[in-house]
Computed example of a mutant assay.
Amino acid sequence: MDMRAAVLTAFGSPLTVREVADPVAGEGGVVVEVLATCVLPYTAEIFSGARQYPLEPPVVPGVGGVGRVVGIGSDATTVRVGDLVWCDPLVRSRDEALTPDITLQGWSSRGEGGARLARHWHDGPFAELMRVPAENVYRLPEDIGVDPARWAALGVHLVPYGGLLAGELAAGEALLVSGATGNFGSSAVAVGLAMGAGRVIAPGRNLAALKLLADRFGPRVRTVELTGDADYDRAAMLETAGGPVDIAIDLLPPQAPATAVRAAAMTVRESGRVVLMGGVGMLGGSDLELPYPWLMRNSITVRGQWMQPRTANIGMIRLIAAGALDLAAEHLTTFGLDEIDAAIAHAAAHGGPFDRTVLTPVAL
C-alpha cells in the first residue's frame, strides 16, 4: 500500500506531497501513524539550504512527533500496536556504547557515521506513517488522546531539558537563559521553572516577548532588555539577577553575535556552569573566546550539549503529566499535510515564546 508524505526533492525546492510506499517495521523498528509534529521556526532555512544541514534529499523531513503504533518488529518486547507514543528523533548507533554515531531522523546528522545511520533511518514525520527504532518510542498517558497536538511540543522542550540536565540544574538555583525570547529559549525558561529553578533571568531585545514571559511566570522570572553593548548588558543581567547566577544556558540562533553569548556566560558565579546549545558560529563569524584567566580562577565549567540523553524523554513526559510543565498555555496553529508550505511559512513568522506550528498528517 501507499501513504501520503511531504517530500523534499532538492534544497531550494518546495516540498511535494505525494504517495510513497508504506514503511515496514522490520527487525528493531516500529511503524507509527503520525498524529502531530512541530514545524520549527527555522525549517525554511534548512529546506532552502541556508543552514547547510547534512540532510540528503529526496527525504521525508521533520523532527520527532506524536503517533499511534500500527506495526512492530518481532524483537519489540514492551510497545504494543495501538499505543500512543512520542517518537524521539535522536537515533544512536547500536554498535558503539561510548561514542555512538548520531542522527536526527529526517533532519540532521553528525559526521560520516551519522550520515550512514541517517540513510537507514532516513525519513521523518511529515508523512502519514513513519518507521522509527523501537528504542525511540515512549508511551504517553492515554488521557492525552483528545489533544495529542499539544504534546508535539516535546520536540522543543526536550532540547533545553537536555541542556539543563547536563548543567545539573538544582532546585532553588538561579538560571540565566541566553536567547530567552526565542522558541527554544522561552522553553528553557518554562522547563527550568518546572525543574525547580528559584529564579530565571531572561534577557532579550523583544519587549513583547519579555512581557509575555513576565506575565506568564510572575516574579520567579526577571527580564532584562538588552542593548547590544556587551559590557552594559552583562552588568544589567547581573544587577537584575539580584544575587549569584548558578548556571547559564545559551540557545541563541546562528545569526546572533558571539559577544552576546559571552556576555551571558560571564554572569555565572565562581564554580558556576555554562551550557552551550545554540547555533552561534555555525554559519561563520567570530568564535566565543572566553577569557582563560576568568575560566581558571573562577573554576568555571563550560559544557557543550547537543540534544538530550534517552532518559530525558521519560523525565520530560513525567514533568508534563504531573502538571509541572503546562502545555495548555501554549498557542497552537495546526495544518494538514496538504498545507505543508503554509505551515513552514507560518512557523517562520511565529517563532516567539510558546507559539507552536503543528503539522497533523493524520486527521485528529
Rank of each mutant, 00 (worst) to 15 (best):
6 A>R: 03
184 F>I: 14
271 S>Y: 12
95 D>T: 13
313 N>F: 06
69 V>Q: 05
136 N>C: 10
262 R>E: 11
151 W>P: 03
89 P>A: 05
182 G>V: 04
5 A>N: 08
177 V>C: 00
168 E>T: 12
245 V>A: 02
198 G>E: 09
218 G>M: 03
240 T>Q: 11
103 T>N: 09
322 A>Y: 05
62 G>H: 01
35 L>S: 08
185 G>I: 07
255 Q>V: 13
170 A>L: 14
152 A>K: 01
304 G>F: 07
312 A>S: 15
51 R>V: 09
158 L>Y: 05
111 G>K: 09
104 L>V: 14
268 V>C: 04
301 T>M: 09
171 A>M: 12
146 V>N: 15
66 V>A: 01
310 R>L: 13
51 R>W: 15
361 P>V: 05
94 R>T: 15
143 D>H: 15
47 F>Y: 14
50 A>V: 11
117 L>K: 01
93 S>E: 10
306 W>R: 11
297 R>H: 11
206 N>M: 01
305 Q>G: 03
1 M>A: 14
188 A>C: 08
297 R>Q: 14
179 G>V: 07
22 D>Q: 14
143 D>K: 10
127 A>I: 10
165 L>H: 10
357 T>M: 02
100 P>E: 08
355 D>E: 14
162 G>V: 07
86 W>R: 07
222 R>F: 02
163 G>T: 08
348 A>I: 02
152 A>V: 03
217 F>M: 05
167 G>L: 07
76 A>N: 13
286 S>M: 12
281 G>E: 08
